[in-house]
Design a binder for these strands. Structure first.
Length: 95
DNA sequence: GCTCTGACGATTT
DNA sequence: GAAATCGCCAGAG
């Protein structure tokens, strides 16, 4: 299993209504410090529908980017009950 | 193997 | 506190 496959796997484990950070996924995938690479990998998400890549946010709790726009990402999160206060995801929603 | 890119992160202006 | 700067890492070409 290469790094990117582990990233998709770990991301798929995030429960609904919860979020994780890029660095957290990088660490779980066995490569702490590869947060930036994780973002690039999720961007090309080959498993639409299977991998909830919108549940991965930045360490500073800001939403971060999204292939189809930050607005859409926020919409998806809100639909799961994850509110965004002042452009940030509250601490209680983190894994 | 080198260079460039970018859904990141921490530090410094 | 926003913007610039630097270090980081996997993919693509």
């Amino acid at each position: 299993m290469n790094f990117s496959e582990r990233v998709y796997h770990e991301t798929s484990l995030i429960p609904g209504g919860r979020v994780a950070t890029y660095s957290y996924i990088a660490r779980r995938a066995g490569n702490p410090g590869a947060a930036r690479a994780v973002g690039n990998i999720l961007n090309r998400n080959p498993y639409p529908g299977k991998v909830p890549c919108h549940r991965v946010v930045r360490r500073d709790r800001r939403p971060g980017g999204f292939a189809r726009g930050t607005r859409e990402k926020e919409r998806l999160l809100k639909k799961e009950g994850i509110l965004i206060v002042d452009g940030r995801v509250p601490e209680r929603f983190f894994l």
